[in-house]
Amino acid sequence: MALTEQLVPLVLAAAGEGEEETSNFLVPNGTFFIELAAFLLLFWLLTRYIIPFINGAMERRQEAIRAEFAELDEAKAEAKGAEEEYKAQLADARKEAARIREEAREQGSQIVAEAREAAVVEANRVKEQAQAQIAAERQAALTSLRAEVGSLATTLAGRIVGEALEDDERSNRVVDRFLADLEALESARPAAQNGATS
């Protein structure tokens, strides 16, 4: 195999490295200082110009994300508060509506009761008025009758009897007695009536 033949000089070269014209690769030379300076320069440049910016960007983004989250939480809390307020208001409104309905019902029944009462009172009043009027009219009729009935009866009786019952004193007495009886009867009747009703 060609590969093994080719490996032999490699191994020989590796073994005899120290005697070769090239120096031992484990021993540093002047390149060391150049590399040191180069890396220190790179390190300084990165530390001065690059890494703070990367860190700053990361921090700013984290800050922005944190702010966004805080805002989100705030908005969420606000929305929740608003919802609760809305629900509370809704419940209040429902309660209020129920209260108003209840009140209206009560008021309605009260109005009906009042109206009924007023109607009863009015009816009583009308009835009493009518009764009073009737009584007054009756009284007036009686009074007018009293005046007329006496003379009329006397006249009639005189005609029947054929003699003038012109003895005023007596006839007046008779008429008055009659009327008094009539009145007594009259007053006894409403009294009995009143006693019966009460």
């Binding site: 490699l10 070269a13 490295e17 030379n29 002047g30 390149t31 200082f33």
Partner: peptide, 16 residues
Amino acid sequence: HIGEHRTADWPLVGTV
């Protein structure tokens, strides 16, 4: 060739 580099002699630092 192992560890072979193009070298130069620079002032102050020597072989580089």
